[in-house]
């Protein structure tokens, strides 16, 4: 089963979290980092990644930097001050959602259970 639909809603949080841990990253690097962290279980498609990056940039959560790398130009993304603040709220939002989902899937788990 493709997990693309499941990832879609949390893609922005994934990007923000990765950029919080790494000072700056470029598009291809993000796809590879996600693949590496999830042992290939999660593959971010380019069709979803780039529009998400551009949207976050437009919202002022990411800033970009253009650098010359081996005879080509590379666009690096990094968090803005607003983006840094947003990471915490997005992460707790996602964590809350996962906890609630866990309760639905496994009703025996009592409220207050932390993943």
């Amino acid at each position: 089963m493709s997990n693309n639909n499941l990832i879609k809603g949390s893609l922005q949080t994934i990007i923000l979290k990765l950029l919080e841990e790494n000072e700056k990253m470029y598009g291809y690097e993000i796809t590879q980092r996600v693949k590496e962290l999830t042992a290939g279980e999660i593959k971010i498609t380019e069709g979803a990644l780039y529009p998400a990056l551009h949207k976050l940039e437009a919202e002022g959560l990411l800033t970009t930097e253009i650098q010359q790398v081996d005879n080509r130009v590379r666009k690096y993304y990094s968090l803005t001050k607003d983006g840094q603040k947003e990471v915490t709220s997005k992460l707790s939002e996602l964590q809350g959602f996962v906890e609630n989902l866990q309760r639905i899937l496994n009703p025996e788990i009592k409220p207050g259970f932390n993943i």
Partner: peptide, 15 residues
Amino acid sequence: LQEKHFDSTHKGMRT
């Protein structure tokens, strides 16, 4: 992708 980028850039510039 090009169209989406233009829309995002437009919105970003306006903001």
